[in-house]
Design a protein around this nucleic acid. Sequence first.
DNA 1: CTGAAAGCGCTAACAG
DNA 2: CTGTTAGCGCTTTCAG
Lengths: 335, 335
Amino acid sequence: MVKITDVARHAGVSPSTVSYALSGKRPISAETRARVEASIRELGYRPHAGARALASNKSNVLAMVVPLRAGINVPVVMQFAVSVVTTAREHDHDVLLLTQEEGEEGLRRVADTALVDALIVMDVQLHDPRLPLLRALDRPSVLIGFPADPAGLTCIDLDFKAAGELCVEHLAGLGHRVIGLIGSPPEVYVRQTAFAQRVVQGFTAAAARLGMSSTVHPCEATPAAARTVAERLLREQPALTGVVIHNEAILEPLIDAFEHLGLRIPTDLSLTALCPDELAETLPVPVTSIAIPSREVGEQAVHLLMSKLDNTPVPSATLLRPRLTARASTAPRTM
Amino acid sequence: MVKITDVARHAGVSPSTVSYALSGKRPISAETRARVEASIRELGYRPHAGARALASNKSNVLAMVVPLRAGINVPVVMQFAVSVVTTAREHDHDVLLLTQEEGEEGLRRVADTALVDALIVMDVQLHDPRLPLLRALDRPSVLIGFPADPAGLTCIDLDFKAAGELCVEHLAGLGHRVIGLIGSPPEVYVRQTAFAQRVVQGFTAAAARLGMSSTVHPCEATPAAARTVAERLLREQPALTGVVIHNEAILEPLIDAFEHLGLRIPTDLSLTALCPDELAETLPVPVTSIAIPSREVGEQAVHLLMSKLDNTPVPSATLLRPRLTARASTAPRTM
DNA sequence: CTGAAAGCGCTAACAG
DNA sequence: CTGTTAGCGCTTTCAG
């Protein structure tokens, strides 16, 4: 194994000069730098990660905790993970993968052993048991999702309220005046993350602001519940021409249900959804949708972490602007 | 930060005794060990990962390269990754996540900087550009999948030949005598991994051995191609009652096509497939299938790596026995 | 702009 | 069964 002293000897300089040439932490004359770089290349020198971590007190490794719960969308998690790794590499960091299963002990372990410099935690719940630990840890962290009390934490997520608004605005722009929101199962509005409520807030606020008639219906993730809610919606709002769906598991059953009730999409009824693009594109009717920008979330999460490692202050909350992709399921009102 | 000397002082022993108490690499009297453990707990001592890696020349970290190519099944990759992390943790190792994108340079980097002790490489291609590097690296590695020339490497995968045989045997057991294999797109049989050919070999060999009439049809991954191949199969083998499908992308189109042609499944036609259980279960007709045992692959890959790190010799090729799950798409022959 | 040297915290001979 | 000690390879003062 070739080490820094080998390079130093070969280049006719001291080890510290090699180190500084590598880190750029102090000025090096052009010629010296050239000589050092040549020696590094010639000898194939690679600094030993452990030695570096020990001497500098930085491992240049980030921990990333991925969720395992049922109900999460695996491709979305994967996209996010890839984006984190790619962005981390651009900042000369590697990524250690932890499973949710390891829990708090896993986070504590990698932080306390100095295996990692910072942590990214996905799928944060409203009252996540890991929050006290993350607050207490001596290493910075970024959370994907917003807990009930984000004080003392750095969080990032899609702006779900704006997403609710954007769906309504899109429908309003097409001339729709009577709309409904089909939401997640009732229990989601109680526990879990706050995002479901925020969609409702945005939806309701925008509808009121735009003078639209609107209702909200939580819905279990079963085809039977989908049929029931579709029927109920039409009974309660016979003039309904627009629907926002925030329940990706029953998107297809809902489309079926509406068509069984004699409504053509988008001729009679316009549909917009909050769901992954992958899903929206492959439905029988491609659905106008807003997706969680997983790539952007991953990128920004890493940027936030890098700032924190630099001691640059960062906002406690980062809300990403929703982007709506218009597809075949929405059209101007015809009735 | 509390270090090993702090623990040693607190317990009234030498640092090496603490180290050995932790590693178990030399006998420690019960009382001493108890005292050391008490001190460790009391002080909340955590050994510094970098210092350990430097002194012991082992980082206790494995690299795992995940694929990004289009056409890979993301949930399967995720299951595999989780299984690797979980198993690695049981062996006191962590897992560093690398993307395919980093390529050979990424592998070389984490190996040469001693960031990782060993590597797991997924989605190995027939003529994978990373093979020479993996052979040359001073750290052990395990490949998921078989390249054209596995010499000097350690590989693991489902036994695809046995999987082909097992499908045929299952159909034979139900009384079917005339069967067909609908395979992957033609180009898959040329490039990529060798697994597609091996399924064909197993299928053909078993059919011959059992005195069955059989044909093989590669098929593009489009619904149109699915319809065409279904028609052709029936034209060429009017007595056909059993089909094996090795092309998960068109499983559903194929089922539709057969039913459009007037065949009820499984009454008129029995279907078995090689595909993820997740998919087999959610098709309109749940399909009897053999899945890649991602969990087992991950586990075994880590076990192989641990053996290699221990200098225990391991087989160069590990083929996992296929397990067939019978579902609604296969039934005894009725005609 | 460059060098010398003191650690970083731990492991593993070596010595008893 | 336990202690002493010499590094592991690098970064970073301190000195010039």
